[in-house]
Design a protein around this nucleic acid. Structure first.
Length: 476
RNA sequence: GGCCCCUUCGUCUAGCGGUCAAGGACAUCUGGUUCUCAUCCAGAAAACCGCGGGUUCGAAUCCCGCAGGGGUCACCA
């Protein structure tokens, strides 16, 4: 049913990936997967100046962490490689020569200064800069040391965009542009067109920043006598503060950081997809499989979406809560406190069971579970800061704890028995749960909040519990 | 400045001529779950659908202006 759907994600290795970049990658991946097609990763490393060491690896790591697997790309050669543009220089040169031969490309004779001069003049006269108004009359033969320019044939265009709908432009949007730089590398404007064609890409799914250039590309496709893939222009993701496009310059976060903090890949994909897309129902939570079957590229919102981290946080908690215990445990491995070393899987799983509902991201495990592994120093502020406890004389508190200790000492320490014993103590001492249980909680966890007290004590075990109550008593 | 894109609660959005005196979710607030935090449940508040015209019996939905926002006009992608 699918007619060889092939999509690609084509980042330049200039750093990490933020939410906006991941979104275009995700959409492209979804289109490929839902059509049983191929998802191609192509590294657009044609700008040596901006290239950042290690970013290709970083980008691949990010995709891998999100389970956005690619079928062809660096490290996964396919029939249309190589998949790094720097390794395809011969190909671009060959295609460029074709254009020269047909009189559709010429050597750019100007220096950078001269060019800037032209631009400044345009600016002064408040007109857009068009290079074609400065075309050399007798271009010299291209010797590879000058930039090579595409000779455009300006005209009006109308085309369809899967997301933006029907678009049109006038001839003023078509201009001569550089296709091969003087360093021998092609520009994006040229390389991506050649590559998408040779790699049989069916859908170009890319960010909005390229929308204004489409007419130029259309002109180039014509000159090359090739069909263009379908276009799908994804609107920007906006920074949380407002109207700006999310960008690295403004400190957009590396998505790999979210992963490290313990945001689940399925959360990130669900959340990022929901930035501009939903299935038309009131459904908010989608599994990855549901995303694949339900996603429709032409349902994507045309306007930019703001990135709201609070919603991401909620969604992660939701996905975390819906994990089964074994799965949660498997994912928790790297997030336990140092002091947990040596403790059994069973013990940790028991802990996970009781903290799962309050977990928002995995790196919270450390602070949420520390007291299960280490006896902490008694902190008197916990009592003085507690509204219900602060006015009770410490002699009384001490007494309560002594009684608590005794009754727990007599317990068989099953969860049931702990529950019974502590509830009895409530009656015996005629205390409010808020008083007695808070007090015991503080003694046992050295923390103002914890999972349900009975379960916490049960997990901790008799010895540790008694020891900690003793310690609290000794300072009262 | 030219060209292009966008415009529904604070935020993400539903909505494709009548069932919308605009629905859901996050965030916020209130109450409940005979212990905290969290979860969960119930509820509240929150958008005169950017503005102005038109078309129509009827418009958030169609058309035209305008305004605001964004993008682009690189030997960057």
């Amino acid at each position: 049913m699918s007619k060889n759907i092939r999509t690609r994600f084509a980042p330049s290795p200039t750093g990490y990936m933020h939410v906006g970049g991941v979104r275009t990658a995700l959409f492209a991946w979804l289109v490929a997967r839902q059509n049983n097609g191929s998802f191609v990763l192509r590294i657009e490393d044609t700008d040596k100046e901006r290239e950042v060491e290690g970013s290709e690896k970083h980008i691949i790591n990010t995709l891998r962490s999100l389970n956005l697997d690619y079928d062809e790309g660096p490290g996964k050669e396919g029939p249309y490689g190589p998949y790094r543009q720097s390794q395809r220089l011969d190909i671009y040169r060959e295609w460029a020569k074709r254009l020269i031969k047909e009189g559709r490309a010429y050597a750019d004779p100007y220096s950078v200064e001269e060019l800037n001069n032209f631009r400044e003049q345009s600016k002064i006269s408040k007109k857009p800069f068009l290079f074609r108004e400065h075309r050399p009359t007798r271009p010299t033969e291209w010797d590879g040391t000058q930039p090579l320019r595409f000779l455009s044939e300006p005209k009006d265009y109308s085309w369809h965009d899967e997301i933006m709908g029907d678009l049109k432009s006038t001839s003023s949007s078509v201009d001569d542009f550089i296709i091969i730089k003087s360093d021998g590398y092609p520009t994006y404007n040229f390389a991506h067109i050649v590559d998408d064609y040779l790699m049989k890409i069916s859908h170009i799914i890319r960010g909005q920043e390229f929308l204004a250039s489409v007419p130029k590309y259309l002109n180039l496709y014509e000159a090359l006598a090739i069909d263009h893939p379908k276009f799908a222009t994804v609107p920007f993701v906006l920074a949380p503060d407002g109207k700006r496009k999310l960008s690295k310059r403004d400190g957009a976060k590396d998505v790999l950081e979210y992963i490290k903090e313990g945001y689940l890949p399925e959360t990130l994909l669900n959340f990022i997809a929901s930035l501009g897309w939903n299935d038309g129902t009131e459904k908010e939570i989608f599994t990855v499989d549901e995303l694949i079957t339900k996603f429709k590229i032409n349902q994507v919102q045309k306007s930019g979406a703001r990135f709201d981290e609070r919603r991401l946080l909620w969604m992660n908690g939701y996905h975390l809560r819906s994990l089964n215990l074994d799965d949660l445990y498997a994912r928790s491995i790297n997030y336990w406190p140092q002091s947990s070393h040596g403790y059994s899987e069973e013990y940790k799983k028991n802990i996970l069971k009781v903290i799962q509902e309050r977990l928002k991201y995995l790196s919270e495990i450390d602070s949420l579970t520390k007291f299960f592994f280490e006896d902490r120093k008694v902190d008197n502020h916990l009592i003085t800061n507690d509204n219900k406890l602060k006015d009770i004389p410490s002699e009384s508190l001490k007494n309560l704890l002594i009684q608590a200790k005794e009754c727990l000492d007599q317990s068989t320490f099953t969860l049931e028995d702990i529950t019974i014993k502590l509830n009895d103590l409530l009656i015996q001492t005629d205390q409010k749960p808020a008083v007695l249980f808070s007090l015991i909680r503080i003694a046992v966890t050295q923390s103002a909040s914890s999972p349900r007290l009975f379960e916490t004590i049960f997990i901790l075990g008799k010895e540790r519990t008694i020891r900690r109550i003793d310690k609290q008593i000794s300072v009262l």
